[in-house]
Design a protein around this nucleic acid. Structure first.
Lengths: 212, 212
DNA sequence: AGAAAATCGTACCCTATAGTACGGTTATGG
DNA sequence: CCATAACCGTACTATAGGGTACGATTTTCT
């Protein structure tokens, strides 16, 4: 089905990506209402006609931007679970990576934007959820199911365990960063990581390496 | 210090509250950018001059609305911790009330608005945090400190325990409601309540009443 | 009653913005 | 080499929104 690219299509795709990139910055920075098509077009450098040629309205550009951004977000969340020697280390490592990702400036802006517009663009929350939190929870749940079966942690509903760990990672520092009252410094991430992992380990009878 | 009210001041205050009420609806519904001063003034029924008489700019009206709304929000969060016969029941009751409050339509809209604008109005997140999450966490932490001292739960940092419980209540259903992909039905709240309380109870060695 | 403050209605200014129109220009494909 | 599709620049429309100005009117304080 894939034909030889052809310079036409190649340039079009490249341009499309450039537009999405500029528009993404604009929307993440200012929100939907405050971002301006004219400004996006100006930063792109071409004419406004061209922009409307690619995306026939502000809403459709916005939808495309979110589609693209959440896809990239998902990509980043896929490889967070890296099994280590022991379960405790795996959990700590996951928490650290996960908290680091979700408190990164771009992730925070994306989160804000989605929360802000979820009321007026109902599909928006769904495409985000299907792409980021849901797969992450699924991977976690599958992993915990195996660990429970192997007797490395208390047996219970693995989906509940997955949600619990995700909650513990998202509720504290992440929330405060979103509210703009905390910075995701390395120290803050580390402290949050250990608090989350600690509570989780106690809840599911996970032994700490070194026997603390 | 408080002088006799005087009809002048009384009417002024009343009018001020009416403005805040209308403006609150507008901002919660549309967000800062999309809400319009002219529309607010129109819904109020007076002249635009009067509106600008009370609040000299859109930004100041917005700030006043948030100030007022978060104050009300705090009021509602204060009485959530109602000690019962045993600790397990207290925790479950708290989770249920807390989750119910934070998933209510108005709380969700407020949350969205604050998340959306925290980037551009840095003080905003702070006034919200100081008024709602922080007092709640403090009350929880004090309560847990007492329970730990009495040997009713595993002794640990009570602040960490408070944060953990709050995270467990905010991470699941609440997030999905904010993203617009879940409804805060009674059943959903109940299920979330028990999941959160269960994990917390295991993490802190809290015995269930009836010995499950 | 009379001064002062608040309100009203309305018209107005200025700027910004989504979106259109169009004639000229450049690149691509056959 | 030529038709065609994309692109550019620019000027333009229409609308809306924040904020102001001002004279007329009502309400409150003394």
């Amino acid at each position: 089905m894939e034909k030889a690219p052809g310079k036409r299509e190649a340039r079009k795709e490249e341009r499309r990506l450039a537009i999405l990139d500029v528009a993404k910055r604009a929307f993440l920075e200012s929100g939907y209402s405050a971002a301006s098509m004219s400004a996006i077009s100006a930063e792109l450098g071409g004419s406004k006609g061209t922009l409307w040629n690619y995306f026939p309205s502000k809403e459709e550009l916005f939808a495309a931007v979110l589609e693209h951004a959440t896809a990239a977000y998902r990509q980043q969340l896929n490889d967070l679970l890296a099994p280590s020697a022991d379960l405790w280390t795996t959990v700590v490592t996951f928490c650290r990576s996960f908290i680091t990702k979700i408190t990164s400036p771009e992730a925070v802006r994306l989160h804000r934007l989605i929360a802000a517009e979820a009321g007026r663009f109902p599909e928006l929350g769904e495409i985000f959820y299907r792409r980021a939190p849901e797969p992450t929870l699924r991977i976690l749940a599958e992993f915990f199911a195996g660990q429970m079966a192997a007797g490395h942690m208390r047996a219970d509903d693995p989906a509940v365990a997955a949600r619990a760990l995700a909650c513990l990672c998202m509720g504290g520092l992440h929330q405060r960063v979103i509210w703009g009252i905390a910075e995701p410094t390395v120290d803050a991430v580390e402290s949050e990581t250990h608090a989350a992992a600690d509570v989780f380990a106690h809840a599911y009878d996970i032994g700490r390496a070194g026997g603390a």
